[in-house]
């Protein structure tokens, strides 16, 4: 790791001012990607601006038909919090599948969404649960927020404050792990929200997390596994690597979507 400076931000404005003053500074949340990248000497920020102490980024609450989670909330909290488990058990279950206990006790929801790793889990939940992502500058619908692999609508100095998920009528997450890294190779979040059925896929899309309109459309005619398993996914839109070819991933999307739909009941 190259030398760097640690700074604990005291407010959103303070954090924004610090990063404005130093173009090579980086926001730090749980650090479960950034610190590993720095240890590999693949990133060399001059300063790490820690956001996890900011009170605005904390808290879990139900507001109307939505579950609102502070961006600095750690995966382990999401996995075990009674409010989350009561409102959206599939989201708590998803959080429990991320990484290992050490990762879950450091990594945060905001950090995961801002990083938008194509194999991360939360982006699938955000897409399927019509999440609204509130930042230091405004609000985004999840569908507008994720713009490509490791890319989001965030500006360099923009901070995710909280994420609000619609509490679905039913939902389930079916995760298929890369056998080596145990990240998602292909995982599907199926939900029924007020806007209709949602199928969101992570780990497989060559532009990152994506929804499958054909499956959602099929589910409007009846919530059955068969409705989605017959939908063909174009391998041209899939990632391909030594752990799973595009063809295999395209096949998995249909299989896992069917299982997620069945699991949601």
């Amino acid at each position: 790791m190259y030398n760097t400076t640690y700074y604990a931000a005291t407010s959103l404005a303070d954090a924004a001012a610090k990063i404005a003053a130093d173009g090579d500074a980086k926001f730090l949340s749980g650090g479960q990607t950034l610190l590993a990248t720095m240890k590999q000497r693949l990133a060399a920020p001059t300063m790490l601006i820690d956001l996890t102490k900011l009170p605005e980024l904390k808290g879990i609450s139900v507001e109307g038909d939505r579950l609102v989670i502070g961006a600095a909330t750690k995966h382990a909290q999401v996995a075990s919090d009674a409010t989350v488990k009561g409102a959206i058990p599939s989201l708590a279950g998803l959080a429990a599948t991320i990484g290992d206990p050490a990762v879950r006790n450091m990594g945060t929801m905001g950090g995961s969404l801002a990083n938008n790793d194509p194999a991360a889990d939360y982006p699938a939940a955000a897409m399927a649960l019509d999440a609204i992502i509130t930042t230091s500058k405004g609000e985004y619908k999840a569908t507008d927020f994720f713009t490509g692999i490791f890319e989001t609508a965030l500006d360099e100095d923009e901070i995710i404050v909280k994420i609000s998920y619609e509490i679905p009528k039913k939902a389930a997450y079916e995760k298929f792990r890369n056998p080596a890294s145990r990240y998602s190779l292909c995982s599907v979040f199926a939900a029924e929200v007020s806007g209709g059925p949602r199928i969101a896929v992570t780990g497989s899309g060559n532009e990152g997390v994506f929804r499958v309109p054909a499956m959602e459309e099929a589910l409007t005619r009846g919530w059955t596994a068969d409705a989605v398993t017959s939908v063909k996914i174009d391998p041209e839109t899939m990632l391909s690597d030594m752990h799973g070819s595009a063809e295999y991933r395209a096949h998995l999307v249909a299989v896992l979507a069917g299982r997620a739909v069945a699991k949601a009941g």
């Binding site: 056998p179 080596a180 890294s181 990240y183 030594m242 752990h243």
Partner: peptide, 11 residues
């Protein structure tokens, strides 16, 4: 070597 870390070499 494509399997040069535990991200790609499955133990």
């Amino acid at each position: 070597l494509l399997t040069a870390s535990y991200m790609d070499y499955a133990m």
